[in-house]
Write a protein that binds this DNA or RNA. Structure first.
Lengths: 118, 118
DNA sequence: CAGCATCCGATCTGATACTG
DNA sequence: CAGTATCAGATCGGATGCTG
């Protein structure tokens, strides 16, 4: 993910962190608790291994996510939110809330009901 | 801006709306009040006319921004936030806040002071 | 199972030139 | 001043195959 070389405004930093098609949803999933890559890939519809690991790596670089590795076979790895990540999750949660409202106003209650969101 | 064809989660809708390098900063600027394209271009460092108008158009399609036109020459146009846009601005403001905190923790107080943010 | 490298098409962005 | 068209380069995203 290409980042700005310099920032005009702190807003842009936050935007860089959650930019990328999958970052918000990854954070959202991790908000439910630590998870392995394969578990995440199961939970996030449509994501491939490459994008998942790539974006997890970027979130790690931003200090939003941390990785734990365990010895032995089969390999076991666990990703989880850092404290910064938890704070960023507040933004994600707010985005979810607005998304729900916008969908309601747009007559998409059906979708929301199917997801158990209303 | 390419949008998802279908959504798994309301979060993704919100993400689509603020995706794009300039959308958050445009909303932020409009949060200060209605503005003409040329005024916005002055206030947003580095943006070109094409990107500005393109992203304003997309924000309009999402119902976040509205446009007012006046008759006569020189042409005069004013963009402003809609009610939905105002609500989205809450997200943007939260992004700004987190961005400020992250920069502080990252030792970039200098930058923030120069901007008058702390 | 976790992770990396590579290739390729789809998108995004920006510069420039042009219209009303 | 506002807005559109076009073109080229940079970036992104996804599929596939390979390694430990």
């Amino acid at each position: 993910m290409k980042m700005r070389n310099s920032y005009t405004c702190p807003l842009e930093l936050t935007h860089d962190i959650i930019r990328g098609k999958w970052k918000p949803i990854i954070l959202w999933q991790l908000g439910k608790g630590a998870a392995s890559p394969s578990a995440l890939q199961n939970d996030i519809v449509g994501i491939g291994q490459k994008m998942l690991l790539q974006q997890l790596g970027e979130l790690q670089n931003f200090g939003m996510v941390q990785k734990e590795q365990y010895e032995g076979y089969p390999l076991k790895v666990k990703y989880s939110l850092t404290e910064k990540g938890e704070r960023m999750l507040n933004i994600i949660a707010a985005m979810q809330e607005i998304g729900i409202e916008l969908m309601k106003e747009d007559g998409r209650e059906e979708f929301l009901k199917n997801k158990g969101l209303i």
